[in-house]
């Protein structure tokens, strides 16, 4: 009897110890901690690809092996995004009908600031992306907004990215529960499976970077937005971040959301924040 009682007490004690050890982990897992998420995210890729230099992840599929890297270096000699870059530079400098320019809408005249986008606007309580800020600038100056998925927007963001090349991504998350919620929402969107193919963003860009999907080599999620906008051979043209999200959704047979919807803005916030410290490499080129 005594032995049974001590066995029972021992089991109860062990269960209590196990619960005490497990409980803080459960709580921690539910707490939004962007810094811890970014560290885990980066470590995952650094460990998965120990031979890739950290700053090379921003070159997407071209960072995945030496052959691909050589292709990238050759491509950079006559970059296919160059025409967009020239067009964007000219558009950026051309005054609106009211005489003002894009430079009047942005800090530092819009030069070398790409690494700070998207940011969380505490007045609006939402994430503001560079594409959104550019269209808001246009509308505030009496101009019609550009399509988020077409060439004009890609050209403008290409030029702005180019002025930030090499600068480390530097996304801030203010001490505001709405900013943390936006980050968490973006994270949820990134990992959520959707479409008839039952794919999440992570299915391709976390589970399978470096692997082929049909003829393409999948890019790692780490630093994937640092190269935006991109020239894609598949598109025979430039593509914005919005276009990238829309296309990814379509490929999984999910109806894409509207460009610059809250979900897209939030997932851009999440992906950019976890790439903090990695250099801006846009505009980029992809197969």
């Amino acid at each position: 009897m005594k032995a049974r009682l001590s066995l029972l007490l021992g089991s109860l004690g062990a269960a209590l110890v196990a619960f005490a050890l497990a409980a803080p982990r459960v709580v921690a897992a539910d707490k939004v901690d962007p810094a811890a998420d970014a560290k885990a995210f980066q470590n995952f890729f650094f460990q998965k690809f120990p031979n890739v230099k950290h700053e090379d992840f921003v070159n997407g599929p071209y960072s995945m092996n030496e052959d691909m890297k050589r292709q990238w270096q050759e491509k950079e000699e006559f970059p296919p995004y160059e025409f967009a870059l020239d067009a964007g530079k000219e558009m950026f400098a051309t005054p609106f009908k009211n005489g003002k320019t894009y430079a009047d809408c942005f800090p530092n005249g819009g030069i070398g600031i790409r690494q700070n986008y998207p940011y969380f606007d505490t007045k609006e309580g939402k994430v503001v992306t560079l594409e959104l800020a550019l269209n808001r600038c246009r509308e505030a100056n009496g101009e019609a907004p550009y399509s988020y998925v077409k060439d004009e927007m890609a050209s403008l963001t290409a030029y702005m990215a180019f002025t930030s090349r090499g600068k480390p991504m530097d996304i801030k998350i203010p001490d505001d529960p709405r900013a943390l919620a936006a980050f968490e929402n973006g994270k949820r969107y990134f990992y959520t499976r959707r479409g008839q193919m039952n794919f999440s963003c992570a299915s391709c860009h976390v589970q399978s970077p470096g692997e082929r999907i049909r003829a393409e080599i999948l890019a790692p999620a780490l630093g994937i937005l640092n190269a935006m906008p991109i020239y894609r051979s598949e598109w025979s043209g430039m593509g914005t971040t919005s276009r990238r999200f829309v296309t990814c959704n379509s490929q999984t047979r999910a109806v894409p959301l509207e460009p610059q919807s809250d979900e897209y803005r939030d997932v851009e916030y999440f992906l950019s924040y976890v790439a903090n410290g990695l250099p801006i490499s846009g505009p980029g080129a992809r197969p």
Partner: peptide, 10 residues
């Protein structure tokens, strides 16, 4: 997926 996405998280 309201809960299942968490299994994929890094």
């Amino acid at each position: 997926e309201k809960e299942a996405w968490k299994a994929m998280e890094i």
